[in-house]
Simulated assay, not measured.
Amino acid sequence: MKTFAVLVLFALVSVCLSTGDSKDTVSGNVADSPSNADIFVKRDLASNLMRQKRAGTAPTALTLTQLESLREVCEVNMACEHMAETAGIVAAYTAYYGPIPY
């Protein structure tokens, strides 16, 4: 039984390896392969794209330490503290102090 399992395993491995990325044997080139120009982007363009992505994302999961630091900032302003109790700390901090720094 072990021999049969090993033979099945080797057959499966050989099928997986043979159906991988195959080359066109007639012309010698790979069909549908991207060129290097399609893969790489200039450094300044990549940094601009990443900066835009970071600027547009909303804070999703703040840790308890980060929420506590927002509460401490909001405690100084009574209106912010009241809004934090009713609408939430994230909404109150954003309304009174602008976007969350982290």
Rank of each mutant, 00 (worst) to 15 (best):
D44P: 12
L62V: 04
D44A: 11
G56M: 05
K23Y: 02
T65L: 01
T65K: 04
R43F: 12
R51P: 02
A61W: 02
I39Y: 10
F40D: 09
S33M: 10
M50D: 04
G20W: 14
T63H: 03
T57D: 09
A37T: 03
A55H: 05
Q52T: 08
R51G: 11
D32W: 07
G28M: 10
A31G: 06
F40Y: 12
L62E: 00
K23A: 03
A31I: 15
L45D: 10
F40E: 11
L45I: 15
S35R: 06
T19D: 02
S47P: 00
T60N: 11
V26L: 15
D21W: 12
M50C: 11
L64A: 06
P34H: 07
V30T: 05
L64R: 13
L64C: 02
Q66T: 06
R54A: 07
S18F: 11
S33W: 08
T57E: 14
G20R: 08
A61T: 00
D24K: 12
T65N: 06
R51T: 07
A46H: 08
A31Q: 04
T63P: 00
I39C: 04
S47T: 15
R43S: 09
D24A: 07
F40P: 08
A46K: 13
S22N: 07
A31P: 02
R43Y: 01
T57P: 00
V30P: 06
V26A: 07
S33N: 13
N48Q: 13
A58D: 01
S22Y: 01
S35L: 08
Q52V: 14
D44W: 06
N29M: 05
T63E: 02
A55P: 13
G20L: 06
M50V: 07
K23S: 04
S18K: 04
R54H: 11
S18G: 02
D44H: 12
K42C: 14
K53P: 03
V41D: 13
V30S: 03
Q66S: 02
T65W: 00
S35T: 05
R54L: 11
S47K: 09
M50N: 06
S27L: 08
L64P: 06
K53M: 05
T57L: 15
A58Q: 14
K23D: 01
T65V: 02
S18P: 00
T25A: 10
L64F: 04
L49T: 04
T60G: 11
V41M: 15
R51D: 11
A37I: 01
I39F: 15
A58K: 08
S27W: 03
K23H: 06
T57I: 10
G20A: 10
I39K: 07
G20S: 01
R54S: 05
G56K: 15
Q52W: 02
T60F: 02
T19C: 07
S47F: 11
A37H: 09
T57S: 10
K53E: 01
G28H: 04
S33G: 05
K53N: 07
D21K: 12
F40W: 05
Q66K: 11
K42W: 04
G20F: 09
